[in-house]
Design a protein around this nucleic acid. Structure first.
Length: 711
DNA sequence: ATTCAACGCTTTTTT
DNA sequence: AGCGTTGAAT
C-alpha cells in the first residue's frame, strides 16, 4: 500500500488517508476520484484492518460498482468480494429482502419499472374515475415520485394536500400505493423510501446496519435526493465515518429529486468535516478545460473552483454550423472518419446529444458510412415488448400477485384472452382470496368464459406451475426462459407472423435466453428472483461498452463518468441544449452543468455542432446556436462557421478537379487499404469502392474520406 | 368479447 | 414519428 500512495497527488493522498469521521471530497471532472475511492477502500482493508463487509460503497451505476470492485480486487485480492459496492437502489433491495417483515412486505416483492408504473396508474385512474385526458397519468406519477423522494407517503401527502389538483393526486397516490402493495410490488422510489423508513423507525433493524457499516462512501453525492440523503445519514450514525465524493458543477438530476444542497450543505450537516478539493485534471487538454470552466463559471451559487492541468493546451475546439440535422449527421460522420484516419480507434469516439430522439439521423448516416456504433439508452433490450412478454411469465411464476405482469401475459401471445377476461380473473381472485396469478388455474370458478378461453387459461396455468416447480428444482434460468418462450406460444406466434420484424423479435427472445444463461453463469447466487431484480435495476449506463471498436452514441446524461479521446456534442442550439423546457434560471443552470459534464468528457478533441434548421414535431424549425457556445472563449475555438461537410464537398470538387476519381481507379484508404472504385455518385462527391482486403464495397465521401488515388 | 385500423396528441434528461 | 384511445369489423 505504501507504494500505492506514491501514485497519488497530495490532496488525493489526504483523501485516502483521512479515514475517521466525515470527509467531503470535492472532485472536479477528471481529477482521479475513482482512484481515490478505490485506494481509500484498499487502504481501509489493508492498512486499517477494516473488514470488507463493513464497507458500504454507493455508486451511481451498477457498472461503476462492478468496476470499482474489480479495481479493489486488483489492490487487495479476492476479499474485495465482500464489500457492499452497489447503487442506492440495489443496496436497498438487498436490505429490504432481509428486512421485508419489518418493512411490511413479503421478501419476494416484485420491482415495478416505469412501464409497469404507468400501467398500474392507468388502472388507478379507472378505479378513481379520473379522466386520463384531463390529467396525464405520467404527471401524476411524477408528483408521486417527487413526494416519495421527499419521504412523503400517501397518507402524509393527503394530509398536506392543498387545492383540488392535490386532492386528486392524493386520491390516486393512495390508490396507487394500495395496488402496489396488493401486487406485492415496489416501484423505484419505494425502494429508497421504504428502506429509509424502516431504518429510521425500527431500532433493531437500524442497529443491525449501523453497526455493520462502519465505513460509508457515496460517489456522485451531488446527485443524491432527500431520501438518499436521509438513508446515508441514518446509516452513518453513530461513527459518522462517511466519505462523500462529488462535484456541485456536475449535478444534473434535480428533475429526479436530486438536491445539490446535499453537497453544498455537507459541512453544515457534519460540522467536523474534513474537506479535500481535487482540482488537478488528468484527462483533458488545457483548452478543453478552459472552455468548460468558462461555461460553468456563469452559474451562480456554486463553490468557486479552478480546475487546472499540466498537460499542454492541445488543439482548439471546433464549432461547426450545419444546414440541418442531416447535414449535421454527415458532419459527425466526417468527423469520425477524420479521427479514425488520424489513428483514433472507434471506441475512443463518442457522439452526445441532449435528447434521445436526436440519435436517429446520426444513426442513419453512420449506417451509410459503415461505421460501427452502439447507442446507449435507446429502446432498451428489456423494454422491448416481446422481451417483456416473456419476462411477464417469469414474474408471475415468481410472484403470482403481480397483476401488471398477469395483465401482460394474458395478451401475449394473442389467444382470445383480453381485458374482459382480466376483469373476471381479478374478480375471481378477490372473491376466493387468491392471488390473481393463482386464479388463472381456477378457470372453472369463473363464469362467462368460452371453451377456448378456459383451455387457454388452463395451459397458461400449467406452464406457470411448471416454471415455478422447475425453478424450485434448480433448473438453470436459461431453461426457464426457453420453457416460457416455447410453451407459451410466443415464439410460434412470431414464426407464423413471418415478417422481418417478427424475425428480429425472435432473435430478441433468443438473446433473452443467452442473457439468462450468462446471468446464471456469473451471478454468485443465481435465482429467478435475482434475475428479475437485475433486469429491473439495470440502467442504460450499465451497458456502455467501450471495448468493442464502436463509436458510442448517447445522451449527455448517460455520459457522466466516462471519457473519450474525441467527443462530438451535437444539437448545440437554443431550445435543444439548453432545452426549451429549461426556462427557469435554476433549470438553465442545470443545463449548463450538463453542458459542462459533456465537454469535460473529452480528452483531446472536442467538436460542437449545431444546425440552422431541424425537423421537430413534424415541422421544420429555424434554430439559433446555443447560448452556451457564446460562453466559450473565442480564442479557444478554431472554426466558427462553415459546415465541414460543405468544406468537404468543396474540397472534393477541388480535389476531383486535380485527381478526379472514376470507376476502375485504384485508391488507398487509411483504414480499409487498397480498393477499386466501382462507381461514382453525386457528381463525384461520393464514390463506391470495393476493398480488396475484406471484399466489402463502401460508399465514401470523396473529399472527406482518408483516401487517395494510387493508380 | 376481441382484434384491427385510423386518428389525434405529445416528448427532456432516468434509477 | 410513436403511442393510446376510439370506432368498426369479426
Amino acid at each position: 500500500m505504501a507504494n500505492l500512495l506514491d501514485d497519488l497527488n497530495p490532496p488525493q493522498r489526504d483523501a485516502v488517508m483521512h479515514t475517521e469521521g466525515p470527509l467531503l471530497v470535492l472532485a472536479g471532472a477528471g481529477s482521479g476520484k475513482t482512484r481515490v475511492l478505490t485506494y481509500r477502500i484498499a487502504h481501509l482493508i489493508d492498512d486499517c484492518g477494516v473488514a470488507p463487509w463493513a464497507i458500504l460503497a454507493i455508486t451511481f451505476t451498477n457498472k461503476a460498482a462492478a468496476e470499482m470492485r474489480e479495481r479493489i480486487t486488483g489492490l487487495v485480492g479476492p476479499v474485495a468480494r465482500d464489500i457492499w459496492a452497489s447503487t442506492f437502489h440495489s443496496a436497498c433491495v438487498r436490505i429490504l429482502r432481509r428486512e421485508a417483515d419489518a418493512a411490511g412486505y413479503r421478501s419476494d416483492f416484485a420491482i415495478y419499472d416505469t412501464d409497469d408504473q404507468l400501467r398500474l396508474m392507468r388502472a388507478c385512474f379507472a378505479d378513481e374515475e379520473v379522466d386520463p385526458k384531463r390529467v396525464a397519468p405520467r404527471s401524476v406519477l411524477a408528483r408521486i415520485s417527487d413526494a416519495k423522494n421527499r419521504l412523503i407517503d400517501a397518507e402524509a401527502f393527503v394530509e398536506e394536500a392543498d387545492g383540488f389538483g392535490d386532492e386528486v393526486v392524493g386520491r390516486l397516490y393512495r390508490r396507487y400505493a394500495a395496488r402496489l402493495q396488493a401486487a406485492g410490488a415496489m416501484d423505484f422510489d419505494d425502494l429508497l423510501m421504504v428502506t429509509t423508513r424502516v431504518l429510521e423507525s425500527d431500532p433493531q433493524v437500524r442497529e443491525r446496519y449501523q453497526s455493520r457499516f462502519a465505513y460509508i462512501l457515496v460517489d456522485e453525492y451531488q446527485d443524491t435526493n432527500h431520501a438518499q440523503y436521509r438513508l446515508v445519514r441514518v446509516l452513518a450514525e453513530p461513527q459518522r465515518n462517511i466519505c462523500a465524493v462529488g462535484d456541485d458543477d456536475q449535478g444534473i438530476y434535480s428533475w429526479r429529486g436530486a438536491d445539490v444542497r446535499n453537497i453544498l450543505d455537507f459541512e453544515r450537516d457534519y460540522p467536523d468535516t474534513h474537506v479535500v478539493a481535487l482540482e488537478q485534471n488528468y484527462r483533458s487538454t488545457g483548452t478543453i478545460l478552459r472552455a468548460a470552466n468558462a461555461v460553468v463559471a456563469r452559474n451562480r451559487g456554486r463553490r468557486p473552483k479552478a480546475l487546472w492541468t499540466d498537460q499542454g493546451d492541445g488543439e482548439p475546439l471546433h464549432v461547426l454550423a450545419c444546414r440541418d440535422e442531416h447535414d449535421e449527421a454527415r458532419t459527425v460522420l466526417a468527423e469520425i472518419e477524420r479521427a479514425r484516419a488520424a489513428g483514433t480507434s472507434l471506441d475512443q469516439i463518442a457522439v452526445f446529444y441532449r435528447t434521445n430522439a436526436q440519435s436517429r439521423s446520426i444513426e442513419d448516416q453512420l449506417v451509410r458510412g459503415r461505421i460501427a456504433y452502439a447507442v446507449v439508452g435507446g429502446p432498451r433490450f428489456y423494454e422491448r415488448a416481446e422481451v417483456r412478454d416473456a419476462l411477464a411469465y417469469l414474474r408471475v411464476a415468481a410472484n403470482p400477485a403481480d397483476e401488471i405482469a398477469v395483465a401482460r401475459l394474458l395478451g401475449a401471445p394473442k389467444r382470445g384472452l383480453g381485458p374482459g377476461c382480466l376483469v373476471k380473473l381479478s374478480l375471481c381472485a378477490q372473491t376466493h382470496g387468491l392471488a390473481i396469478g393463482d386464479a388463472i388455474g381456477q378457470a372453472d370458478l369463473i363464469a362467462g368464459l368460452n371453451q377456448s378461453q378456459r383451455a387457454a387459461l388452463a395451459r397458461t396455468a400449467s406452464l406457470l406451475t411448471e416454471v415455478a416447480d422447475a425453478d424450485a428444482a434448480g433448473m438453470p434460468l436459461s431453461g426457464l426462459v426457453a420453457m416460457v418462450i416455447e410453451r407459451s406460444g410466443l415464439r410460434a406466434a412470431l414464426v407464423i407472423e413471418g415478417t422481418l420484424e417478427a424475425q428480429g423479435r425472435i432473435e430478441n427472445l433468443d438473446e433473452l435466453e443467452n442473457v439468462a444463461a450468462e446471468y446464471h453463469a456469473n451471478a454468485p447466487e443465481p435465482s429467478l428472483q435475482g434475475f428479475l431484480e437485475e433486469v429491473a435495476l439495470q440502467s442504460d449506463a450499465d451497458l456502455v461498452d467501450q471495448e468493442h471498436g464502436q463509436v458510442t452514441l448517447m445522451t449527455v446524461h448517460n455520459a457522466k463518468g466516462l471519457e473519450f479521446d474525441v467527443v462530438v456534442m451535437t444539437g448545440m442550439e437554443d431550445g435543444i441544449f439548453p432545452h426549451a423546457r429549461a426556462d427557469e434560471p435554476d433549470s438553465l443552470e442545470e443545463e449548463r452543468r450538463l453542458c459542462y459534464v459533456g465537454m469535460t468528457r473529452a480528452r483531446r478533441r472536442l467538436v460542437l455542432t449545431h444546425a440552422e434548421t431541424r425537423a421537430i414535431h413534424g415541422g421544420r424549425e429555424y434554430r439559433l446556436p446555443s447560448r452556451f457556445l457564446a460562453e466559450i472563449p473565442r480564442d479557444a475555438v478554431a472554426t466558427r462557421e462553415g459546415a465541414p461537410v460543405r468544406e468537404a464537398f468543396a474540397g472534393a470538387t477541388q480535389r476531383s478537379a486535380v485527381v478526379p476519381l472514376e470507376a476502375g481507379d485504384t485508391v488507398l484508404h487509411a483504414t480499409f487499404g487498397e480498393g477499386i472504385v466501382t462507381g461514382v455518385e453525386s457528381r463525384g462527391s461520393l464514390v463506391r469502392v470495393r476493398f480488396s482486403r475484406d471484399g466489402t464495397e463502401r460508399r465514401l465521401m470523396a473529399g472527406a474520406a482518408p483516401m487517395r488515388k494510387v493508380g
